[in-house]
């Protein structure tokens, strides 16, 4: 790997790192917020159920992200 390829890889690493390390981490935090019911506490039953569903969807995306990480190790 020469210097040009190295710098090219650098940007990708930073971008992917941000996507996983910030994106998935904050999505997980958002999922926690949704399932905690704090956002939907003044709404009706439907709002609460929707809140939990959105939270569950966030956790699923995070799990898929972790799965992609595992795939990266396996496919290397």
């Amino acid at each position: 790997m020469n210097l040009v390829e190295e710098v090219d890889a650098l940007w990708k690493v930073l971008l992917a790192g941000m996507l996983g390390g910030v994106g998935l981490v904050t999505l997980y935090a958002f999922g926690l917020l949704m399932v905690s019911g704090r956002v939907t506490e003044n709404g009706g039953t439907f709002a609460r159920v929707m809140g939990r569903a959105v939270g569950g969807a966030c956790f699923t995306v995070v799990l898929v992200g972790a799965g992609v990480g595992l795939y990266v190790i396996l496919a290397k």
Binding site: E6, A9, K12, V13, A16, G17, G20, L24, V72, K76
Partner: peptide
């Protein structure tokens, strides 16, 4: 614990990204 989670999340993401892009 929130810091622990974001620290390990960041480590996992950076390490896996680097190993994928061969850095």
């Amino acid at each position: 614990s929130p810091q622990g989670f974001s620290a390990e999340g960041s480590s996992a993401a950076v390490i896996l990204a680097a190993s994928h892009f061969g850095f």
